[in-house]
């Protein structure tokens, strides 16, 4: 299990239907993308943090998970500070700081809404509902199988990597490249081998091409949907009021 999936299973909001959380996070994402960054992005960020607090998302995990995407956001916003191709080869861009801040604010707010969703909704809950959509059955089943095999393989990779590290496999860069190659090789062999053994086991039990799992019925309550739609609507209303007043 990845830290995100573990947190999603432990989340207080696990019991709500994914559609409810989808309305909340999707709505906030739409606000972040479509409204002017000021005050839109700030309001989205406030709403997201409030929701994360209500859902008791571990703050430390939130920071750790957000670090990688935010680093990319900063790297991508930084070039907006400078301009090329003018009279000088490289110069400070006029209004570049404002543009960079806008882009960074919008993207950071959007990343927050994504994290709120993934930290409160286990992937298994989503996959169970994917089968009821109109996507091709074969695709849905391959997606589900990938998810089922992925966790076992991830664990295998962690064990192999820990064994290699224990034998100083990552001591130098040269050894690291060799160990990483060996890890990739062993993962390929084991993933195919596991699929074949799974196939034999399933065939013995009369596999018809369908792996059915029991999905706990979670009704979508209109009250919950309305409550989930409220924060995005409030953010949009405040943002539009701000624009109208100025």
């Amino acid at each position: 299990m990845t830290p995100i999936d573990t947190a999603a299973y432990r989340s207080r909001w696990r019991r709500y239907h994914p559609a409810v959380k989808g309305v909340l996070c999707g709505g906030l994402l739409a606000c972040a993308l479509l409204l002017p960054p000021w005050p839109g992005a700030a309001l989205v960020a406030v709403a997201t943090l409030a929701a994360a607090t209500a859902a008791r998302v571990p703050p430390g995990l939130l920071v750790r998970v957000a670090a990688a995407p935010l680093l990319f956001v900063v790297t991508s916003a930084a070039p907006l500070l400078v301009t090329v191709g003018g009279p000088e080869t490289l110069a400070w861009a006029e209004g570049g700081a404002a543009r960079a801040a806008e882009v960074a604010a919008r993207a950071s707010a959007a990343v927050g809404t994504q994290l709120l969703f993934v930290l409160t909704t286990p992937v298994a809950d989503l996959l169970a509902r994917l089968a009821r959509t109109r996507l091709p059955t074969a695709l849905v089943e391959v997606v589900a199988l990938t998810y089922q095999m992925l966790m076992v393989l991830l664990r295998t990779a962690q064990r192999v990597a820990s064994g290699q590290a224990g034998r100083l496999g990552y001591h130098s860069r040269r050894a690291g490249v060799r160990s990483a190659g060996a890890l990739g090789g062993v993962l390929f062999v084991r993933s195919l081998d596991r699929a074949r053994r799974l196939q034999e086991g399933l065939a013995c039990r009369g596999y018809t091409g369908r792996l059915t799992v029991l999905v706990a019925e979670q009704p979508v309550r209109p009250v919950e949907l309305a409550a989930a739609a409220a924060p995005p609507l409030l953010v949009a209303a405040l943002s539009l009021a701000h624009a109208a007043l100025l």
């Binding site: 391959v142 997606v143 393989l153 860069r173 690291g176 490249v177 993933s191 195919l192 018809t208």
Partner: peptide, 24 residues
């Protein structure tokens, strides 16, 4: 060939785990 599904699932899982590896 319904059995292909399992191999494709294995290949998908393999791609995911490879991409999650940190390389030196």
């Amino acid at each position: 060939n319904p059995d292909t599904k399992l191999l494709l699932g294995a290949a998908g899982a393999f791609c995911f785990v490879l991409s999650a590896l940190k390389i030196p």
